[in-house]
Simulated assay, not measured.
Amino acid sequence: MFVARVTGSVVATQKVASMTGHKLLTVEPYRVDPESNARLVPTGRTFVVVDTLGAGIGEMVLICQGSSARLTPETEKLPIDAVVIGLVDTMDVGGSVVFSSRDRGD
């Protein structure tokens, strides 16, 4: 699993039948800053994920990748490699909050 920020959406009007009706998002993974351990920094990578929870642009989400992405009831028969499995409220590293959804400023 990893945390990522939702950066956009993907629209595909032509796709396999089993994927019809499934929302696709682009996300950028984040990691703990190795220099300070007090904040999250982007990795510069982008993934396309299936969203089963209704995540929005700018939200921090928890992603499951690989064959584990097909272990939820909503995704068990889908040809996917990554899925949103949680919406992150807060993230604490070493006793310090490095992310809080309350600080997003929406």
Rank of each mutant, 00 (worst) to 15 (best):
F2W: 04
F2T: 11
F2Y: 08
V3T: 13
A4K: 00
A4T: 04
T7A: 03
T7E: 03
T7C: 05
G8F: 05
G8R: 05
S9K: 07
S9G: 15
S9A: 11
V10W: 01
V11M: 07
A12P: 02
A12R: 06
T13W: 00
Q14T: 11
K15V: 07
A17T: 08
A17Y: 01
S18G: 01
S18Q: 13
S18K: 12
M19G: 05
T20G: 01
G21H: 08
H22M: 05
H22N: 14
H22L: 10
L24Y: 00
L25H: 03
T26L: 12
T26N: 10
Y30W: 14
Y30T: 11
Y30L: 15
Y30A: 12
Y30R: 11
V32F: 06
P34W: 07
N37R: 14
A38K: 15
R39Y: 03
V41S: 09
G44H: 02
R45E: 15
F47S: 08
F47N: 06
D51V: 09
D51N: 04
T52G: 00
T52K: 04
L53M: 13
G54S: 07
G54R: 01
E59K: 03
E59L: 06
M60Q: 08
V61Q: 06
C64V: 15
C64Q: 14
C64K: 09
C64R: 10
Q65H: 12
Q65V: 10
G66V: 09
S67Y: 05
S68N: 10
S68M: 08
A69V: 09
A69K: 01
A69P: 04
R70K: 14
R70E: 05
R70S: 11
L71R: 12
L71W: 01
L71K: 10
L71Q: 13
T72Y: 07
P73R: 13
P73C: 12
E74P: 01
E74K: 09
K77N: 14
K77M: 13
K77I: 09
L78E: 02
L78Q: 04
I80P: 06
D81G: 14
D81N: 13
A82Y: 01
A82N: 04
V83A: 12
V83E: 01
V84C: 07
L87Y: 00
L87F: 00
V88K: 03
V88T: 12
D89H: 13
T90V: 15
V93G: 00
V93C: 11
G94H: 04
G94T: 02
G95R: 11
V97E: 04
F99V: 13
S101C: 14
R102I: 11
D103T: 13
R104M: 15
D106S: 11
D106G: 13
D106L: 15
